[in-house]
Amino acid sequence: MSKKVKKRLITILLSSLVLIIATLLITMNLKDNIIYFYSPTELQGASIDKKNIIRVGGLVKEDSYEYNDKTKIYSFIITDNSNDVDVEFVGIMPNLFAENKGVVVEGLAIDKKKITAIKVLAKHDENYMPPEVIDALKKEGQWQEK
């Protein structure tokens, strides 16, 4: 092997090694940071790691929205009309949060019926429905096209 070829071979081998390691690290990192979305029904069947952040979406159940003045905790129930999930949240509620409207929360599951929300995701206007919520309702046969 000539010197030139040898040099080139080493360069190629080294750079592919770096590339493989980098790709592995990035994909592992990606795996740790994926946030899965569940409808209340899906959450019942899913295996949940309590350390991982998840999203849950559906409708805010009627008469479920409460605020505790002492603990400063908001609580409400997300439903897809088949299953319910209790939500507790400390923070700022988005402007358009209302009962019987779509909502998506991001947080940690305490168990399959309860989640502590870190974020309640904002909606843009009254008619907007998060696409995941539409899908979740469709799966449960609860979605009506207007």
Partner: peptide, 10 residues
């Protein structure tokens, strides 16, 4: 057929 998002930490 699974809805996901990627967190900023990634």
């Amino acid at each position: 057929q699974k809805s996901t998002s990627v967190g900023p930490n990634y």
